[in-house]
């Protein structure tokens, strides 16, 4: 066992750089996904078809084709058109587009679930469409969408492990290196999985704090489940499922966000 720990200590610099690659993919992917989610999410609920139809098509396309297909497309196909992308950029693009398409549905659903009266009151005050969306509707939709977006962000983090397939030296790759040096699968992969778990859990904690803040601004009570709970939402419809740690009370079980 002490051999394992010696190997672990020796491998720490590599593991650290692996975590760094994983974090780069995650942060880049989340930022891109968020931008895409806002653009496509707003586009998909536009009354004008030149905005709505392309948004809908892009959402269905990037949700419907697998993440790995999209990654390979950037990695193998783009160079054939003379666009050689760095592996990290390929990863960020594929992750951002894939999860951005899912997140667009979250954004759309959250905006739609802001009460109609809020839109009407803003109209009655003659606020411009942009100001209405930005100052009145968005802050309220934001509080609704945080748990679902956090779930997608965790899924995106898990998705970054595909980078291993295009031979990037991310956390998964370095985990496997540790297996080879220690010859102990259980130990090495235990370290790797705990690494992913910790990153994911930190993301959940951050999201819970964000949600608490957003709800306080709206004068609502703290979200149920508390700061440390992990809540699961439906990936495709982004409908919230009840808080994992809060017993009973099946609020919003099915299709709360349409």
């Amino acid at each position: 066992m002490s051999d394992n720990f010696d190997a672990l200590i020796a491998a720490l610099p590599d593991l650290r750089s692996g975590v760094f690659i994983t974090l780069q993919l995650t942060v880049g992917g989340v930022v891109l996904a968020f931008v895409i989610a806002i653009v496509l999410g707003l586009g998909a609920r536009s009354p004008r078809w030149p905005a709505r139809v392309p948004s809908r098509i892009l959402i269905e396309f990037f949700r419907g084709t697998s993440l790995l297909v999209q990654l390979f497309w950037f990695f193998y196909v783009m160079p054939l058109f003379g666009i050689k992308l760095d592996a990290l950029l390929c990863g960020v693009l594929a992750l951002g587009l894939n999860y951005g398409a899912y997140a667009a549905e979250v954004v759309r659903g959250a905006i739609n679930s802001v009460p109609k009266g809020q839109w009407e009151a803003a109209t009655a005050l003659s606020l411009s469409p942009v100001r209405k969306l930005r100052k009145i509707i968005w802050p309220q939709a934001w509080a609704i969408m945080i748990p679902s977006l956090a779930n997608l962000a965790v899924m995106l983090l898990k998705g970054t492990a595909v980078a291993y397939i295009i031979l990037m030296h991310d956390l998964t790759w370095e985990t496997d290196q540790l297996r080879q040096t220690t010859g102990n699968t259980f130990f090495a992969y235990g370290v790797g999985m705990i690494g992913y778990f910790l990153i994911a859990y930190l993301m959940v904690l951050g999201a819970n704090a964000l949600e608490r803040h957003a709800k306080r601004r709206l004068g609502q009570g703290p979200p149920k489940g508390g700061l440390f709970s992990v809540r699961i939402t439906d990936k495709a419809t982004a409908a919230p499922m009840p808080a994992a740690n809060a017993g009973g009370g099946g609020a919003g079980a099915g299709g709360g966000v349409v």
């Binding site: 983090l157 492990a161 998964t172 985990t175 699968t185 992969y189 999985m193 992913y196 778990f197 994911a200």
Partner: peptide, 16 residues
């Protein structure tokens, strides 16, 4: 299980 990647779970089980 839910908060760790399938890829790493696959590798773990495969080598175990």
């Amino acid at each position: 299980i839910r908060m760790t990647p399938i890829v790493i779970q696959l590798l773990f089980v495969f080598y175990t």
